[in-house]
Amino acid sequence: MIAPLLEEGLPALGLTPPPGAVEQLDQYARLLLEKNQVMNLTAITEPEQVAQLHMLDCAALAGLCRLEGKQLLDVGTGAGFPGMVLKILVPSLDVTLLDSLNKRLDWLAETCGALGLSGIRTVHARAEERSHDPAFREQFDAVTSRAVAELRTLCELCLPYVRPGGYFLAMKSVDSDGEIAAAASAVKALGGGLERVQDYEIPGTDIRHRAVIVKKISETPKKYPRTFAKIKKKPL
């Protein structure tokens, strides 16, 4: 049920999957559903919905930004979305999956092994802390986040990781106009500029989602990000 939906859905997104990618995504989905029986990885438990609302939703990003040969960081990766999907679809992509919950990362590392993926690593850390590390700060061509946090918060957590000239891609709902407007000052303060907002339809559904694409224009001031308590109490 999963593979046929991917075989139809990926071309509908303008994507030509590399050899073996559909099989890897299918196996990834099956491993996710199997592990979800003992660990809370996803609230979506129907195979058809996993294919559409996880795999194809995340795959849409691969059609919106050139990722070949780039370094990507997925902040708050959770069960690996969108970082794992993008790695499978763009094998030359170097991917770092960052999350604050180690047991999720352990499962992702095991899954990478089962899928035969290389050029992908996991990092156990809080996003607002690790970006002050010189080995991570402004070291990535692209940073993604599918987290449910408000865009102002996500920008402060993610933009410090993006090198000037790179991009932050936030996955949002289509009713996020207010969030985007409210985040304008934060984007500017963090060294970014809103490049475009791209809505897309998930193939096989009538669901529309949105990618907010922010370009890194200049270095982020060293005082950002602040502690999470300060970010939450007083968003930029």
Rank of each mutant, 00 (worst) to 15 (best):
R121Y: 12
L64F: 04
A109C: 10
E34T: 12
T77I: 07
M55F: 15
P82I: 09
L64H: 12
R66G: 03
R66I: 00
A109S: 13
V85R: 00
N40V: 05
S92D: 09
Q52T: 13
L56H: 10
T111L: 05
V85L: 02
K87M: 02
D106E: 14
P47Q: 12
A51V: 10
L33H: 11
K70A: 03
M55V: 15
E110R: 14
L67P: 03
A43Q: 08
T42Q: 06
D57H: 08
L56N: 10
L53F: 15
I44R: 02
D57S: 08
I44H: 04
L31C: 06
E110F: 15
V75H: 01
A62S: 15
A60G: 13
I88A: 01
L72D: 05
Q49D: 15
C58V: 01
L89W: 06
L61M: 11
I120T: 07
P82H: 02
A62W: 05
R30F: 14
V85H: 01
N102M: 02
V75P: 01
F81W: 08
L86D: 02
C112L: 12
G78M: 04
D106T: 08
L73S: 02
T45E: 07
A79K: 03
V50M: 06
V38F: 02
K35I: 00
A62T: 14
V95C: 03
A79G: 14
S100K: 04
A43C: 06
R66C: 00
L89K: 05
V90W: 03
A60W: 07
I120L: 14
F81P: 01
K87H: 03
S118H: 14
G83V: 06
A51R: 07
L97R: 04
N102A: 11
H54C: 07
G76Y: 10
A125F: 08
